[in-house]
Amino acid sequence: MQTTTALLQVLSSGIGTGAVYALVALGFNVVFKSTGAMNFAQGEWVVMGGMVTALLIGTFSSVGLAVVAAVVLVGVVGLLSERLTVQPLKRPDALVITLVTIGLSIVSRSLVMLVLGKKPVGYAGFSGNTALSFGGVSIQSQTLWIIAITLAFLVVMHAFFERTILGKALRAAAADREAAAIVGVNVGSTVLLSFGIAALAGALAGAIVTPLTLASYDQGAIFGFKGFSAAMLGGLGSLPGAVVGGLALGLLEAFGSFYISSDFKDAIAFAVLLLILFVRPSGLLGRADIVKV
């Protein structure tokens, strides 16, 4: 019964989900690189992206404009969050920042609930709710949009980190804060920037996935959890790692629930995640930290 078309169907669904996980993982990685901390508010920004887009769609009438406006708006929320919670820290070490972001996520969730409401929201896909059929394999046009937009965003991010002064400064600060500060990099602003980028990536993920899945204020934790797992799987701090980790997790979930059992979908995905981390503690593409003692 498990024909090739069924296999391709599951494959396409895994890639679509994986692309979203990759964007969320990217947000984790950017903040990890600049601060060494896990940003647990990442998932809330995904929800905000979807819910703000849904709110703005009435005003802008075009989905594209609403998405751009929502992503920029949530990006600003990311910047504000850093200024209000991380920057005032006297001793901003990784553990303290991680703990602060847990608080930030709870506050963000409550604000989303109070400002944007408790009801799940959704909107039509960027090319309507159409599905394309490729020889028996049916793919939502929105899934193709997700894959294309994720790819485009990753290319832009890659160019940013490799080509621009700002991107290089961010990488320099990530590699060695003190050395970067000595050569004139404003280390404080690189942390700010990384929060902004992380919020952009999260909001974009939320805005493009909402037509398929709806958005409601309480989904943030699960998105954060999946994105965090994807980042771990791919290797923390690595941009290609986010892509590999996201896709791997998406495919694991899809094939796990297809071939084994949908009852144990998450269990299968996380069992494999644990196994990989036993063998490669730094993730698939991560480089092991070498500490001289």
């Binding site: 024909t3 069924a6 398929l212 979930e253």
Partner: peptide, 21 residues
């Protein structure tokens, strides 16, 4: 019988199985 988590955003694998059955 098939199942899904309340937070799930994708049910294609389950639905594909149901279709094939």
């Amino acid at each position: 019988y098939e199942s899904f988590a309340p937070s799930d955003t994708d049910m294609m694998p389950q639905l594909t199985r149901i279709r094939d059955a």
